[in-house]
Simulated scan of single mutants.
Amino acid sequence: MTTTNRRSPVNPAPAMHQERPPVDTSRPNPARRYDYWLGGKDNVAADRQSADQIAQVFPQIRTAVRENRRFLHRVVGFLTAEAGIHQFLDIGTGLPASPNVHQVAQNIAPAARIVYVDNDPMVVTHARARTTSTPQGATAYAHADLRSPQTILTDPAIHATLDLTRPVGLLLVAVLHFLDDHDNPHEAVTQLIEALPPGSYLAISHASLDRLPVHTAGQLAALTATGAHGSFHPRTRDEITAFLHDLEPVDPGLVPITQWHPQRAPKPETSTEETAIYGAVARLP
């Protein structure tokens, strides 16, 4: 990932980043596993083995991650075109998958500005090499972790790219379920929201076992409880709703992602039961 600033919206400014830690390929990584399910090639054997084991229990997982991407595209299109949001903070962005947030937003508003954040150094490296902003806009990247929101909020890339006195679209798409309760995910979201001005928006999607058959839900819970696949903490609809506390939900509120503005492109292509993911967009008053 290459950080850009307002004086140079496309060219890199690598001096703003510290040296990255080595990539651990011995353990599965959520971003690389997600890439594998989407049909990408930026993954290793450990990711593929983990992904295939999860798919044996929940065969619809590839469908679910594709629908999550469609949800993300609908959200960014809505926020850019209808809510007037032209700057985004995308945390837990994962490996680049076209179209990405900046492509969707800048197709509508060429001057849109986007900062991507991820805690995986491989994501940072690949996204730097592949992402190019429009001349009018900007893309930048921060290597930081949602578990430490202040490291995100103080990253130079954010302050060089976004104007935090103007509304921002905060995207937490398919990332909060990787935080256990001891990671204080609600406090992390609260800190991020408090750093944004009124009129900003929060968009989330979050895995849930609510709508899965009891047998499938039990198998998934048992598989992920081993720790071999990394941290994974699906939550109930009520638990996910708590992340939207004191915000103004955009209609239709927190719903299965296939039911969020399904008339917008790209339209959902599957049933609610095959996604096992809730999504919502809410406005900061």
Rank of each mutant, 00 (worst) to 15 (best):
L95N: 07
S271K: 10
D251C: 02
T93H: 10
D246M: 01
T258W: 13
I277Y: 13
T236F: 06
D155G: 04
T165I: 10
T190P: 07
W37I: 07
P21K: 04
Q263T: 14
I152Y: 08
Q103W: 05
P59Q: 05
H86T: 06
Q60Y: 09
I108D: 12
S200G: 03
V250W: 08
D35M: 01
R211S: 13
M122A: 08
P28M: 01
H233F: 11
P22L: 02
Q136C: 03
L171S: 12
L179Q: 14
H143G: 00
P266A: 04
S200D: 01
N11C: 13
L72Q: 06
N68S: 10
T190C: 04
A207S: 15
I152K: 04
L89N: 01
R113F: 11
G279V: 10
A112M: 05
Q103P: 13
Q53I: 00
L72P: 06
F243H: 14
A112E: 11
V124L: 05
Y201P: 15
P30F: 00
S133T: 11
Y278K: 10
G84D: 00
G218T: 03
A140D: 10
N43E: 13
G253S: 09
A81E: 13
A55Q: 02
V117W: 09
R69T: 00
T139L: 07
N119R: 11
I54C: 09
A160K: 07
P12W: 07
L196P: 10
F78T: 12
V75D: 12
L89H: 00
V175Q: 14
A207Q: 12
E82C: 03
L196N: 02
I277P: 10
D120H: 03
H126K: 07
P135F: 03
H229V: 01
T258V: 15
R235A: 06
H245C: 07
N5L: 09
